[in-house]
Amino acid sequence: MAAIQFSEEKLNKVKEIVARYPEGKQKSALIPVLHLAQEEFDGWLSSDTMDYVASLLQLKPIEVYEVATFYSMFNLKPVGKFLFEVCQTGPCMVSGSDQIIDYIKNKLGIGVGETTPDGMFTLKTVECLGACGYAPMMQLGKHFREHLTPARVDEIIAECRAKAN
């Protein structure tokens, strides 16, 4: 595996983020930089990645670990190329999210928290994402997919497969 290292462009982005805070408060950049690192390094944070972020921001590695383990958006294990994060909280539940989760499980042949053998899809259930009026829904990358139905799920899966090819 190649050494963990941001591109010049990303390093400039880190500088730009650090400049948002007063002198000496670069720790505030930690969460934004972890997002950047997760996007850059395969969608998850390995301990090497976290150590790299620590050195970039002049923090102790433990300061990074304790933050990375607190927030649910940081993946501490490898995930598939496409991560389906399906909401299961009350408002989505009353609108049929249980059935959508079951449908995805059957369709992909995996359980919650699992990845398909080809490394393509990971299914996660998440708690309220703030799309209650457009339920059931899931997060896929940067965007929300709302008003889910089995047919809509089929389309999304096909779309992902097409994108991967």
């Binding site: 948002r20 972890l34 927030y71 958006m73 309220c128």
Partner: peptide, 12 residues
């Protein structure tokens, strides 16, 4: 005045 946007990372 400067305004900055900071993203959280999933924590109610």
């Amino acid at each position: 005045l400067e305004i900055y946007v900071q993203r959280g990372a999933g924590a109610y």
